Computed example of a mutant assay.
Amino acid sequence: MSEDAMRWSGQRTDRVDAGALPGLARLTGLVRSVRTPEFRDVTFHEVLAKSALNHVPADARMLPGEYTINPYRGCTHACQYCFARPTHTRLGLNVAGDFDNEIIVKTNIVEVLRAELARKRKLPPRVAFGTNTDVYQRAEGRYELMPGIIDALAGHRVPFSILTKGPLIRRDLPRLVKASRATTVHLGVSLSLLDEELRQSVEFGTATTTARLATVRAIRDAGLECTVFLSPILPFLSDSASQLEELVAAVASAGATDVLYHSLFLSGGVKDVFFAWLRREYPSLVAEYTKLYSSGSETPYRHSIGERIRPLIAKYGFPEPDETIEDKFALNGRRGQPPPEEPAQAALF
């Protein structure tokens, strides 16, 4: 056994504290919970999934009729505004620290996916990654689930899209180039903050914007198209005329093929998490945000952002953002809304 494997084996726990993790304690597919020094304060809960492909119901608020694959639940990127945080409550975990630090890993997802694809009479018309949590978060560097997933989809010529903040996708670019020869592959990188101090505060587990811009360039150098999601634009923090122009200019210089933009969307428990951060870091803006996100004025604000950023998008030679671009990533114009429900937990693990 390697030194690395021995270190992880030594961190194994044989049971889950039902008081702390009530949802996980009920999962029959839970294999072990693991902590390691490389991931401070993070616990990985390794589970055996019974299914890999998630077919979103036609009446879902987001991605109706689409297919998704979520190798991970929870995300070490720890973005304070992440719209996927409420999904953790389905496991009896909270939307704040648990979402950042209690990560569910479907360790057998590649094998399950291969079996599902082999027995399906009608293959999914498309699979979307990144509609819930980021598949290229730091955990992927340890578990390496995406290479097998990519190969399985490409082997059956199933089109797929990936939206990520993680430069780790660069590891898989040769594999993605090969997949693109067999099927349609759409890649997207999310970034909206050039202010490094602000990025480190509000999404402290993510890679730097410089690293993400380099990722856009690497994708383009590999011969693949890359959409950049300027999302979320934060009111009073990253939405000035100069900030927006600098941002669009930066992604244009990196070689992005097209861009989409979204202003900050807050719902349910996500709003509580974000406002807790805001009170700590920018208390002077609490009143403005309270007004903006409690009086219905968010919609006019979104329109004002569009009026400011669309001329810049045209100025730097990008096509007009529209639903055809969003559709590449199975977003259907609903980015920022809560992700769809997955099947009942008993069917997942």
Results as ranks from 00 to 15, higher is better:
Leu24Gln: 02
Asn101Cys: 09
Gln80Arg: 12
Arg279Val: 13
Glu320Ser: 04
Val216Phe: 08
Ala152Glu: 09
Leu24Gly: 01
Ala347Gln: 09
Asn101His: 13
Ala252Ser: 15
Val177Met: 12
Asp100His: 07
Thr324Trp: 03
Glu197His: 15
Gly141Glu: 10
Glu246Gln: 14
Ser2Leu: 04
Glu342Cys: 02
Ala249Asn: 02
Tyr67Trp: 13
Glu203Phe: 05
Thr299Val: 15
Lys50Val: 04
Gly29Val: 10
Ser9Gly: 09
Arg61Gly: 10
Met6Tyr: 11
Ala218Arg: 10
Asp272Glu: 15
Thr68Cys: 05
Pro300Ser: 11
Leu266Thr: 10
Pro232Lys: 11
Thr227Asp: 00
Phe160Asn: 08
Leu234Ile: 06
Trp277Thr: 12
Phe44Ile: 10
Pro147Arg: 12
Thr87Glu: 11
Asp239Val: 07
Glu196Leu: 13
Met6Trp: 09
Thr43Met: 06
Ala276Ser: 15
Val112His: 01
Phe44Glu: 07
Arg7Ala: 14
Thr209Ala: 13
Arg175Ala: 11
Cys79Glu: 03
Asn132Glu: 03
Tyr72Glu: 08
Asn94Pro: 01
Pro64Gly: 08
Leu113Val: 02
Pro321Asp: 03
Ile150Pro: 01
Leu224Asp: 00
Ala276Thr: 15
Met1His: 05
Phe160Ala: 07
His55Arg: 13
Arg335Trp: 11
Asp322Met: 00
Tyr136His: 03
